[in-house]
Amino acid sequence: MTAAVEFQNVTRHFGNVRAVDGVNLAIAEGEFFAMLGPSGSGKTTCLRLISGFEQPSGGAISIFGQDVSNVPPNKRNVNTVFQDYALFPHMTVRDNVAYGLMVKGIGKAERLAKAEEMLGLVKLPGYGDRKPGQLSGGQRQRVALARALVNEPRVLLLDEPLGALDLKLREAMQDELKALQKRLGITFVFVTHDQHEALSMADRLAVFSDGKIAQIGTPEDVYARPQSRFVADFVGSSNVLPPGLTRALGGPAKWASLRPEAVRLSAEGQGRGRVTAIRYLGAGSRVVLDIGGTEVAALVPAGQPLPGEGAEAAIAFDPTALHVMEA
């Protein structure tokens, strides 16, 4: 099967900066794909390479098997939901949504009907006459989504789509986006720096670091079996153990990751240390121990006894939870 989006050794330089550095990537049709990484890691540049706002310095990009290296943005059957939504302030919501059809020369009655239908899809029926300035952040986001979907793109790109929304709204939109993607069957590629968002929404994700893909895989894969210290640290605040400590805890002399939720506190155990911080999280508490100079966090479920700050404690865990990494 041809990939919806394929990167072959793609690089993008800005002067001396290698924003994207030899990326290979294949996004399958109908997939919900996340590009995760800290700011400046190259994830947004990759998205812009797909939409055509950036051109690769090297390598090849194809969309559904067709090389798009020389295709301008307006000729790519790909649409974007922008981070700042980029709604046209001088047009009504309806005209914003119908814009893609208007520039294609589709008749007024047809395009306005289609726009109304799209507004219904994003649960904003009857908002067509308003101006973007009269909408809340969440509503603007929906309009941006409707405007991008009206063209029936083969790939929808979302640039930090939920970044500007508050927590409650963000969670509701995550569910809705996921449901919408399932229903439409369009390939969604979204960029985020929020690991929870990427893990909860994506079918597969790529973790970016310094313009390269550090790891690519399903959320379970990336979360449970990080291939590098960077991934372990970035995706879900894991404990990263140096080789010495790994060996002391019964593993090989290599870097390893250990999830806080896999760590229990006990009177006797493999590692002893002093409690340096306790943070209450609601469903549990995060207890940080200093074990031989390395901070190791344990997630203690609510209801279990907590040690006091400065007290001595030991950690215990199932040996299979210790994940050894190559880098």
Binding site: G52, T80, R147
Partner: peptide, 18 residues
């Protein structure tokens, strides 16, 4: 006029003139 607005127009299929 934010740059993203011009990109949005191109993204939605508008030519330079449009």
């Amino acid at each position: 006029v934010p740059g993203s607005m011009l990109e949005a127009a191109a993204d939605l299929g508008a030519s330079g003139g449009q």
